[in-house]
């Protein structure tokens, strides 16, 4: 009798744990573009990535379409290369698209702003592994202030 009750209560304990884990997995954690969801990879080379990090968002007009997969330095010209993982549900961006590193709000996180280019008649679509040519680097506050002071001096 007692062992049956014990086993029942331990069973309930396990069910509660599973429920808690499910709540965390489904409701709390970002369901962004995990490895399970199919995606394709694009590359972009910047002069300066500022405070961009792995897993930063890639947004088109404010809609998150992907995440930064990894960031590394090009060994030849020492410019950072950002690997973007874009969801398969967003296809057919023209190769004239541009990417910029933007900041959400004054002090917010940095993300990749993806600006789809104009679609001409015989446009080429960005496919898996392509490089995005048109990139705008992050604004670095110190550089801006430096430029501002410099230009005032030269006036």
């Amino acid at each position: 009798m007692t062992t049956r009750k014990t086993e029942l209560m331990v069973g309930i304990f396990v069910i509660l744990t599973i429920a808690a884990t499910l709540l965390l997995a489904l409701k709390v954690v970002n369901q962004g573009f995990s490895d399970t969801q199919s995606s394709y990879t694009l590359y972009a080379k910047f002069d300066n990535i500022g405070g961009l990090k792995t897993r930063s968002a890639v947004k088109v007009g404010g809609v998150t379409v992907g995440r930064v997969e990894s960031i590394y330095l090009d060994p030849e010209d020492f410019n950072p290369i950002v690997v973007l993982s874009v969801s398969d549900s967003y296809q057919n961006f023209p190769d004239t698209s541009s990417v910029a590193i933007l900041t959400s709000g004054l002090l917010g996180e940095q993300y990749i702003g993806f600006q789809p280019g104009f679609a001409f008649d015989d446009f080429v679509v960005l496919a898996d592994g392509d490089f995005i040519q048109d990139t705008k680097s992050a604004l670095v506050l110190e550089d801006l202030i430096g430029q501002f002071l410099f230009s005032r001096d030269s006036d």
């Binding site: 965390l24 997995a25 409701k27 709390v28 954690v29 970002n30 369901q31 962004g32 995990s34 897993r55 968002a57």
Partner: peptide, 15 residues
């Protein structure tokens, strides 16, 4: 409450 939480919390890093 939920969506900003989802945008911030990461499974492998936090949970």
């Amino acid at each position: 409450y939920w969506s900003i939480m989802q945008a911030t919390v990461e499974w492998d890093k936090d949970v």
